[in-house]
């Protein structure tokens, strides 16, 4: 379309209008398929606080195991709720670990952060963010009429897995966080950073966690939303491990 002119074209009645009238929206010729990648080249530098050592949330494996141990398949909602305290506490401690790992490099900024406030604030925000996440999970196809309690608890869990480390890492700096989306090679950026990779793979893991649900094996762990929860938790660990390889 002719950008900027709102889809209008001006024609003058003067006869020999130049033939080379630029039609900016017109499809380019032929081998244009190969030009797609060139358009995305931009020189944006990533802005992620780097870590001195990788942080791999191995404890998440234990949490999942513990939740199964304490009867996740029998009483989903209650176990999810009690497991919530565990994940919040471990995420707060791993949050302080993230702060510790990212502190050493920027010694100057050390004083300006109020660590307890940051951790507490992140907890509050992660709790709050579980509401939009809940809507997203519903939009993705979570049951509307039933299991709402389980779905919400799932989104709180996921919110702590996905958002909490990011909130702590970026110290609420949304601008810096959003800035990274403009980077050319986003995936290599993500997989080079254990916290980012862990958060990203949590999302992917939850997405993949949908797959076993339709199978007609009639196993207790196929109940909603156990597979998604396990997918998310495993994803977070896998993400951390993958970042080691890159």
């Amino acid at each position: 379309m002719a950008r900027g002119k709102g889809g209008r074209k001006s024609v003058s009645f003067q006869p020999n209008e130049s033939a080379g009238n630029s039609d900016s929206g017109e499809i380019t010729n032929g081998d244009g398929e190969h030009t797609e990648h060139q358009a995305t080249v931009s020189g944006v530098k990533p802005n992620v606080p780097s870590l001195t050592f990788p942080i791999i949330p191995v404890q998440n494996l234990l949490i999942v195991y513990y939740m199964f141990y304490s009867g996740l398949t029998e009483n989903i909602a209650d176990t999810l709720f009690s497991g919530l305290w565990t994940i919040i506490i471990t995420q707060i401690s791993s949050g302080s670990l993230i702060l510790y790992a990212s502190k050493k490099k920027t010694k100057k900024a050390q004083d300006s952060t109020n660590v307890p406030l940051l951790l507490a604030g992140s907890t509050a925000i992660a709790l709050f963010l579980s509401i939009p996440l809940f809507i997203v999970v519903i939009l993705f196809g979570a049951p509307l009429a039933e299991h709402l309690k389980e779905t919400f608890l799932l989104s709180v869990h996921l919110s702590f897995l996905i958002f909490y480390p990011l909130l702590v890492l970026f110290k609420f700096d949304l601008q810096a966080f959003a800035h990274n989306f403009q980077v050319d090679n986003m995936y290599s950026l993500i997989f080079n950073h254990s916290v980012l990779a862990s958060s990203f793979m949590t999302i992917v893991g939850t997405w993949i966690g949908v797959i076993p649900i339709p199978l007609d094996w009639d196993r207790p762990w196929q109940q909603w939303p156990i597979t998604l929860l396990v997918g998310g938790y495993l994803g977070s660990v896998v993400g951390g491990l993958v970042s080691l390889i890159f």
Binding site: M1, A2, G6, G7, R8, K9, S10, V11, F13, Q14
Partner: peptide, 18 residues
């Protein structure tokens, strides 16, 4: 575009051309 032509000339705009 029409600098070189008569100032009083009629122009037409095709709406929906895009």
């Amino acid at each position: 575009e029409s600098e070189d032509s008569d100032a009083s000339q009629k122009t037409a705009t095709i709406l929906g051309y895009g």
